[in-house]
Nucleic acid binder design. Structure first.
Lengths: 347, 347
DNA sequence: TTTGGCACTCGAGGAGATAGAGTGCTAATA
DNA sequence: TATTAGCACTCTATCTCCTCGAGTGCCAAA
């Protein structure tokens, strides 16, 4: 066990070095940079073992070693030390975050940009999953004959609206009547429990012709379902081009191509974050990522909170070879500031 | 004059060839591809003249010629022939555009993606400039004590909303009263004419304490001003990496870096499109573009219409070396379909 | 178990050498 | 006077060859 421990120290040193230099690390360089009390030959033996165990690999015979996915995984799980941000870093983040316009979307976008700037990587902030929030208020306003505005206030204060088409000859009074019934039934209902049937029964005892009702009901229903749509703020894609990891332009091309499907990326992040206790970090490394074109990347994501019940994802996408502990602490700080900021607008 | 005409034919051939091959074009290649009834030596003389006149230049002594910015400009202004899309191309565009969700933002985004896909370049679609539209309806809804929702319906059917903070102790009735006064004054007013003073005078004969009024007025004012914000849908940045022009990664980096400031790009496009009669094309080539990092690009933009009065920009950003006439016809078709689609949702 | 020593491997990068496309210029031609 | 053939020259892209050096694995000694 003691010897395993020793080997893990070597692995840790290799990952640290490789992350900071982006060069395959050899036994000699390792001795120089870290004060191991053994010779390079001994280290070579350990490294050969680590390779046999699958933690590291060599690009070619006469090169140093680089961590494998498994190596990174081990590093992330047990080896890396927690990094703390300097005061300047914190101030920088704090001042960036705090000068958002006080509007939900801007705050998220701003948080995403801040995160990308501080990490130098691609950042990702997603709007909250609303499926498990509930409808606090529903208003239907007549805009003009044939058109109405549906305003939904969800729990935790998110507001969504949609212009919907209604029969031309519905009068404002009739609409109001429908609206009142619908509102009464739906207010407070979790979004997921709302179905066409709930809606239809809510208005069945009015004296408005059914043909009129149906269209309004249907439009309302789709509007509610659409409210749940995930938006994603992906920032800093171009920063990947500056990293030594994606200098090969075919790689860079594939990478940016994959990132351009932000919906796909968001869906994936949503997936891996689905049943995760909040506050913890989801980390996916290299081949663990099942998205085409992102096999050389790592995802680090966590959740931010908006109100008591709903939460969204925030994180970064970077090369496998990234400073995991630093990035995690950066995400962590941005996340906490984001939480504060959101709390502010939510009273 | 006839000889100038001849030279211009040569210039046209050079641009055509260079655009399609991306290789400096030499006198011999030119003879082969186009049926000029002269020898390569004669052509060489003409080319030397064209170079003296500034229309073409050579990368180095023993290479062929490439068009200069001035050369492209001449080509675009007078030489290129109008391209027409094939039926398949039209169908492709049409089917893509027509399956948008019927919601303003989605339609614009979808148009942008379609344009990027068909041209293979970066597309750009901006939300309309609303400054010269007017406020058709203003509604203020109480969400909960201390918070209200401001809904603005602008001329041409655009809807904007914003959650605003109001004094805690304002009652729904008081808010309604304020709202009524404000609505009465503002309805129909062009956004530009609305000022804090207009707002303040609109409510001065109510019996609500001024301190309450002020905050509501102020929030309303900023909300209205913010409604004018330009959004931009920039799609397909990564496609630039596939073009032979940006194979040098420093170039690619600069380019994508510049494009990542979508606000700046949008501002620029807005600027050049400001006083332009609709339906015409704004074309900016190479150095004509005053944005850092985009000196090797060209912008082609035009306007789409939403309703009778307001309009937004649509266009592409590509390398100087692009098939101008083809791209223009592609933009044109997408634009016309977009106009149709927007008309549909606007009744 | 560790270490020094040694032969071996392989890629990065530099130095020529060559081919080929293109040019400008001159002198002959219609 | 405009056009053309011919020719010397230029420059880059590409290929091959070579060397350097970091790194390895393994063996034998400590």
């Amino acid at each position: 066990m003691a010897e395993t421990n020793k080997k893990m120290q070597v692995l840790q040193a290799i990952v640290d070095d490789y992350v900071s230099t982006n060069e395959p690390v050899g036994s000699k360089a390792l001795i120089e940079r870290h004060k191991f009390s053994v010779s390079s030959a001994t280290l070579r033996n350990d490294m050969a073992d680590l390779e046999r165990m699958g933690y590291i690999e060599k690009p070619h015979t006469s090169a140093g070693r680089i961590p494998s996915d498994k190596g990174y995984r081990e590093y992330v799980n047990s080896l890396m030390k927690v990094d703390t941000l300097t005061l300047e870093e914190k101030n920088e983040i704090e001042s960036r975050i705090s000068d958002s316009v006080d509007n939900f979307r801007s705050i998220l976008k701003n948080a995403s940009m801040t995160l990308s700037e501080t990490t130098g990587l691609v950042s990702l902030v997603m709007t909250p999953r609303l499926a498990d929030s509930s409808l606090k208020q529903l208003k239907i306003l007549m805009i003009e004959p044939g058109k109405a505005l549906l305003v939904m206030v969800l729990s935790a204060g998110v507001v969504k609206d949609k212009v919907v088409r209604i029969p031309n000859f519905i009068t404002p009074e009739q609409l109001m009547q429908i609206a009142n019934s619908v509102e009464k039934t739906l207010n407070g209902k979790p979004l997921e429990e709302i179905s066409l049937i709930t809606l239809a029964t809510s208005v069945k005892d009015t004296d408005i012709p059914e043909s009129l009702l149906n269209q309004v009901i249907y439009e309302t229903y789709t509007a509610i379902k659409q409210a749940d749509q995930l938006d994603v703020y992906l920032e800093g894609e171009h920063k990947m081009l500056s990293l030594p990891d994606f200098q090969e332009l075919t790689r860079a091309r594939d990478l940016l191509g994959a990132l351009s499907h932000d919906g796909v990326v968001a869906g994936y992040v949503n997936e891996i974050g689905r049943d995760n206790d909040s506050d913890s970090y989801m980390i996916r490394i290299g081949q663990e990522i099942t998205l085409e074109g992102l096999e050389d990347c790592s995802f680090i994501t966590t959740t931010y909170k908006f109100g008591d019940t709903i939460s969204g994802n925030i994180g970064v996408i970077g090369p496998k070879r990234m400073d995991y502990s630093k990035v995690i602490s950066q995400i962590d700080f941005v996340r906490s500031k984001l939480n504060q900021e959101l709390k502010k607008i939510n009273e």
